[in-house]
Design a protein around this nucleic acid. Structure first.
Lengths: 325, 325
DNA sequence: CCCCAAACGGAATATTTATTCATATTCGAT
DNA sequence: ATCGAATATGAATAAATATTCCGTTTGGGG
C-alpha cells in the first residue's frame, strides 16, 4: 500500500518536471527532499512507465525504415526520402535534395570531399546545395575520370567544379577518361602531373560522395559512349556482379568482383573508399535495388540516401541479414 | 521542403536521445554537428511535438484532481487518496496512511512539529508512521489543549507523545483543557510554567499538522464532553462559521469568525498558523466538505490530504474561485 | 541480542546539458 | 549593391542533472 503513496509522489515529481518544466532543485525544495532524490525518482518514473516518451517522425519522413536499414545492413546512418511515384526522375531529385541538406548541415571545416562525378543523383544534389560563404571544404577531388564523350566530360568537370565553388574548396579534377583503352594506356595517362596529383589526393579524402550503378547501364552511362563493351559487362554479370561504385564492381554479398577491366579504370578503388572517414552513397530506383543491396554489403558505405520505394524493397528482401558492430 | 529534411534530422536526434539513450555529445560526434546544436534540436523537437512526453498517474492516484485542488484553492500541494466508499472510517484510515508516508518522506532534520491533537485522522496518521531511528524532529508541540474528559485528555497526550517518539523529537504537551471555562480561567491556566513554555514554542513550529472540524461536532469532539454549548455553536453558525481548525472558526470565504469563545481557547490561533512554514491539513468525508472548503480559503494550508469523494465535491462546487499566487 | 548484507539517502562530485557570448550569415529594405 | 535586423552557429562557460561515496538504517540470520 505504501508503494502507491510512493508512486503518487513519483508521479507528482514527474509531472512537475516534465509537464510544468520545473528544475529538479526547485522540485526538491518544494517537496523538501534532496535534488538527488528527485533525480532518482525521475529515473524510477521512467522504469515504472509513469512517464512515457515517444518520438513521432514527421509525416514525409521514414524513421522506422531508416532504422531498419541501419540495422539490417549495419550502416551508420540512412536517409529515406518521401517520393510520390517510383520513377527515377523524381526519385533522384528528392534524394539529391536531402543529400544536399545533409551535406550542408554536417560538412566540417577543412574537409576534403571526394566526388565520383557521373551520377545524375549527385548532380541533383549539387543543384540543391546553397553556396557556403565561409569556405567550409578545403578541397573537392574528382574520384573518377570523365567519359570519352567530350560533352559528358565537361559535364563531369562542371559538377566537381560547381561543388567546389559551392563548398568553398579548391577543385581537383581528374582530366582523364574513366576507363582507359588498355592497361598501358592507363599508365600513360597516369604519368600526367595533374592526374597524378589528383590521384594522390585520394588518400586525403575525408568525405566521399558516390553513386551506385546497376549492371544495366544508366542513361547517363550509355549516353557517355561505350565505356565497357556489352561483352565485358556480361562477364562481370557472370562473375556475380550486381552493381558498381565508381566502376568498381561487387556481387550480391558485397564482395568485389575482380576483372581485367579494373586495371583500366582511372578512379578510386573500393579499398581506398573503405579507408575514408565518411562515405555517402546516393541511389534509388527500381533498377538499382540489387546494386544498392550489394553496395551496402561491401561495408564501405556510412550513409545511404535513398527513396522510400527502394528502401522498402531493400528491407522486404529475405536475403540473409548482415549485422555489423 | 528543406524544412522536412531539417525535421527528419531533428527526429533522428530525438530518437537517438530519447529512444536509444545516447548522450548529446555522442550524437553530435556521430552526426558531425556540435553538442549545442543537438541540445537546440532537442528543444525544437519538443516544440514541434516530435517528442511527446506524457505522465500517467498510477491507478489509484488522482494527479488530475490534485492539480485541480492546487489551482482552485491556490494551495502548494494536495494529496487525494483512493477510497472505495464514502464513509468516514475508511476515509480517515487512508488519509492517515498517505499523510504518514508524506511526513516520513519529507520531514526535515531539526523540525518543530505542531500537532493539534484531537483529530481521529491525525491519530490514524500517527498509527502509520514508522519509527525514525535517527531523530529527525527536534520537538513535537501540542498546539491545542486536551479535553475536559480525562480519558480523551490522555488520548490527546498520547498522540503527541507517540508522534514525538516516532519522529525522535521531544514532546511538549499542553496540559490544559482546549477550552477554559472563562477568559479568566484561561489566564490562570496560562500562568502554569509548562503551559507557557509550550505556548511559547508555537512560534518555533516549522510544520503544523491540523485537522479540520465541521460545525456538527465529530464523534471524538462530542465524546470529549461539551466543549462549547450548542448555543455557542449556533452563534458561530449564525455568524457564517462553516468549520474550525484547532477550534478557531472561519466562514465559507475563509475569513475568521471572531467570537467571545476565542478568548477561552487554549491553542494556536489562525494567525499563528499562517506564519508557519508548512501547514498540513488532514480531512475528508461528506460532512466536512464545507468546512474543508472554508479552511482552504483561509490561505493558511499548504498541503491538504483528503479523499477522492471529498476532493470531487470540493471541485464540483460552483463557489467562486479564489486564486492565489 | 547482535551482527552483517543490503538498501537508502544526502553531500559532494562528476558528468551532462543549456546558455551566453562572439561571429558569421541571411534576408529584406532601401 | 549595401546596410542593418534577425537568425544561426560553435566554443566557452554556466547550470542542471546523475552518480559516487559514505554514513545510517533496516531486516534478516546466527
Amino acid at each position: 500500500m505504501s508503494r502507491l503513496n510512493e508512486l503518487r509522489m513519483i508521479a507528482r515529481v514527474a509531472q512537475m518536471y516534465h509537464v510544468e518544466n520545473q528544475r529538479q532543485a526547485d522540485i526538491a525544495k518544494h517537496l523538501r527532499i534532496s535534488q538527488a532524490t528527485v533525480s532518482r525518482m525521475l529515473k524510477r518514473a521512467q522504469e515504472e512507465e509513469i512517464v512515457r516518451t515517444t518520438v513521432v517522425s514527421p509525416s514525409g519522413t521514414y524513421a522506422e525504415i531508416e532504422t531498419g536499414l541501419r540495422q539490417k545492413f549495419g550502416i551508420a546512418e540512412a536517409i529515406v526520402v518521401e517520393c510520390s511515384e517510383d520513377r527515377d526522375g523524381p526519385i533522384m531529385a528528392r534524394i539529391g535534395e536531402a543529400a544536399a541538406h545533409f551535406l550542408e548541415a554536417t560538412l566540417q571545416p577543412g574537409e576534403v570531399i571526394g566526388v565520383s562525378s557521373w551520377s545524375e543523383t549527385i548532380l541533383k544534389m549539387v543543384d540543391n546545395i546553397h553556396p557556403m560563404k565561409s569556405g567550409k571544404a578545403k578541397q573537392v577531388v574528382q574520384t573518377l575520370g570523365g567519359m570519352g564523350d567530350p560533352t559528358v566530360q565537361i559535364h563531369a568537370n562542371q559538377l566537381t567544379t560547381r561543388l567546389a565553388k559551392l563548398t568553398g574548396g579548391e577543385a581537383h579534377l581528374l582530366s582523364a577518361p574513366g576507363v582507359a583503352q588498355s592497361r598501358e594506356a592507363k599508365l600513360v595517362l597516369l604519368s600526367d602531373t595533374y592526374v597524378r596529383e589528383t590521384i594522390e589526393l585520394f588518400s586525403k579524402v575525408t568525405l566521399a560522395i558516390v553513386g551506385i550503378g546497376a549492371m544495366e547501364p544508366s542513361s547517363m552511362l550509355s549516353r557517355s559512349g561505350n565505356v565497357f563493351t556489352s561483352r565485358e559487362i556480361a562477364e562481370v554479370k557472370d562473375a556475380g556482379g550486381v552493381g558498381d561504385m565508381s566502376l568498381r564492381f561487387f556481387n550480391a554479398d558485397g564482395q568485389p568482383v575482380k576483372t581485367p577491366m579494373d586495371d583500366r579504370v582511372i578512379g578510386m578503388s573500393l579499398e581506398e573508399l573503405s579507408t575514408i572517414d565518411r562515405v555517402i552513397a546516393l541511389a534509388g530506383g527500381q533498377s538499382k535495388t540489387a546494386a544498392i543491396r550489394g553496395a551496402l554489403r561491401t561495408g564501405v558505405i556510412d550513409l545511404l540516401v535513398t527513396d522510400k520505394f527502394t528502401a522498402d524493397r531493400l528491407l522486404a528482401s529475405d536475403a540473409p541479414i548482415t549485422t555489423r558492430e
